[in-house]
């Protein structure tokens, strides 16, 4: 599914990136080819976050190509 303005995500940590570099890992290896949207709000008390090994809240892509 390709929408008009696909957000960039970091290829290494799968987080949505607004600028040119990922704020979490500093990587500039970005892509807009991803699928599945996950927003973690409270990673400490979330099973989903635990399973995905996410320790900071944020928006994450489930699948990055």
């Amino acid at each position: 599914m390709v929408s008009k303005k696909q957000q960039n995500v970091c290829r290494s940590c799968h987080r949505m990136v607004d600028g040119d570099a990922c704020v979490m890992c500093g990587s500039t290896n970005l892509t807009d080819d991803w699928a599945g949207y996950l927003v973690v709000i409270d990673p400490r008390h979330s099973d989903i976050a635990q399973k995905m090994n996410i320790d900071a809240p944020g928006r994450i892509a489930l699948k990055v190509r």
Partner: peptide, 11 residues
């Protein structure tokens, strides 16, 4: 509202 995570899988 106490929401921990929200997910929208493509499948």
């Amino acid at each position: 509202f106490d929401i921990k995570a929200i997910m929208a899988p493509d499948e």
